[in-house]
Computed example of a mutant assay.
Amino acid sequence: MTSTPASTLVLNPDELGPDPVPGMDLAVELGIDALEIRSAEGANAILLGADRLRRIRSLADERELRVAALASPLWKWCLPEATPGRVDSFGFATQVPPGERLAHVERALEAARILGAPLIRIFSHLKVGGLTESFAEDPMLPRALELAEQAGVRLLIENEPVCTVADAQSLLTVLERFHDAGLGLWLDLGNLHEVGQADPATVEALAPYTHYVHIKDFRQAADGSRRFCPAGTGSVPYDELLPRLGALRPALPYALETHVRDTPAEALAEGAAYLRAALAKVLP
């Protein structure tokens, strides 16, 4: 009998703060052997110099941890003359002149090389009214995909609600067009819930393109805001979504993105336990 490959749990050290060491140590404590790197030492990862990136890689190697993905801010930007809303970009500028963007792609590819990350997250331009850019028609996208292929990494688009490609239909349109060129999906199930499409049918449609999964959970507060909580304790219907996704794609990385500010370590531990139990029900 052929065994089914196991899914991988991933932890982002910056959920615990700018020093990556506590997050890495928590990963070891929780039996998680893969990391997602987004920011460290107070800076976005793609803005860190080579020496600082090598230090992060060394800290991971010392703990026998590998870097599963680089959570870059690429394409979470708009034109300099546009006015973006409140955007969480982890220390990266949101207004970027087109002439400077390819250099950021090249920096991200170099950061991924140093860290040993085979996957790089990208977005799809911020929605900024009449100045919103088209991701599918961005002339830099084919070049970035070509450079990524040459570097041996894959670019994955995240379904981010503040960006132009967030709902299922727009995702499928872009992925069907660019998947053969190397573009894949960084599926955030919490974001899918935020746009009202967190259902098994949508997950089934997106599954063939999915290479990485973000797991976060939240409850809706009385004032309409989101209150983040450990995975499995909020309103995201993971009990419906994970069985379908796990059945279709049994060997995916699942990255815990708690966003719980007061007790992040406890939230990550609780989320990891929930996720392991949920995935154990899916895999034979």
Rank of each mutant, 00 (worst) to 15 (best):
Q95S: 06
F90A: 14
R113I: 00
E106L: 05
E64R: 15
R101K: 11
E137D: 15
L102M: 11
L74M: 02
L145T: 08
Q95I: 05
L74N: 04
D138M: 07
W77A: 04
P118H: 06
A144Q: 03
V128E: 09
R57I: 04
L74W: 04
I114M: 03
A50K: 07
R107E: 00
G130I: 07
K76C: 02
L126H: 13
S58Q: 13
L147K: 02
C78T: 14
L79V: 13
L115Y: 12
L48A: 07
A50R: 09
R55Y: 11
I157N: 08
Q150P: 07
I114D: 01
A117I: 08
R52C: 06
G99L: 11
W75K: 04
R63E: 13
L156T: 04
E106C: 02
V96S: 03
M140D: 14
A82Q: 12
P73V: 02
C78N: 12
I120S: 03
A60N: 09
E110N: 07
E133W: 11
A108P: 01
W75F: 15
E81G: 14
D61V: 14
L126F: 10
G129I: 09
A117F: 04
T94L: 01
G99A: 12
V87H: 05
H104Q: 00
R143S: 02
L115E: 12
G129T: 09
R57Q: 10
E137W: 10
V153H: 00
L102A: 05
V67G: 10
G49A: 13
H125P: 09
E64Y: 15
L102P: 05
T94K: 05
P97L: 06
R66P: 13
L147E: 02
I114Y: 10
A111K: 01
L48I: 12
I114F: 09
L70P: 00
R52V: 13
L119A: 06
R55W: 12
A148H: 02
S89M: 08
G99S: 15
A144L: 02
P118N: 06
G49M: 14
G116E: 11
S89W: 05
F90Y: 15
I157A: 10
H104G: 01
R154N: 02
G152R: 01
P73C: 02
Q95V: 03
A148P: 00
L65D: 03
Q95K: 10
L79M: 13
E106V: 04
A50H: 09
